[in-house]
Amino acid sequence: MNKQGNTYTIIYTSGMVIIVAFILAFAAIGLKPVQEKNIAIDKMSQILNSVNIASTPENAQELYGKYIDDSFVIDANGKLVKGESFAMNIADQMKLPEDQRTLPIFICTDNSGAPKYIIPLSGSGLWGPIWGYISIENDGNTVYGAYFAHQGETPGLGAEIDKPPFQKQFQGKHFFIDGAFTPIAVQKAGQKPQNGADYVDAVSGGTITSKGVQNMLQSCVKPYAQFLESLNSKNI
């Protein structure tokens, strides 16, 4: 057969594509269970990070079982609804209108005894998605800890949001001022938000990423406002 002819070329490419597709499908399916376990462990360690518990891939599962003792899903009115909070895709939920979202919450009881409420976050930075978890004390107002991560923000600038110096600033900040929901602002150093909200310093050189964190806090925590208020009236 003529190796430079069209028929040969077409048969050759078809054969090649089919063989490669089989090999790749086989590899992807074979390795999937191990990969999913890794992703779950990574998520556990991120949730633990938001309550200031450091973990390694080896002990994340154990620590998660020890400290995160409950999780549930609520709707925008603060009522319990059915759902699996760990497996829920927050980015998908964010696309729905606010009152139709289902909102997962994780509860952490550490050595101090009082439960902390962990809220997952999802938003967008300059180059791609950013996400995180923020934990709130049982007064429904004070931040206990925060964790942010990003897919591909600029190293040294926007990427600083996943470093402890930025995240530690959030500890002790408040989500309610005089009983009204005012999300924590991320401000250029030296500036203050107009509405009197609590604020943290933005990453210098990472303005758009910092704005992304601010918007994420605003849009992801707002649907929880009723739930947090009810916590506040229950525990204070």
Binding site: A27, A28, V34
Partner: peptide
């Protein structure tokens, strides 16, 4: 294939 193996064993 390399990417998948890394994701599975060196996450």
């Amino acid at each position: 294939i390399v990417d998948q193996v890394l994701k599975a064993y060196m996450y």
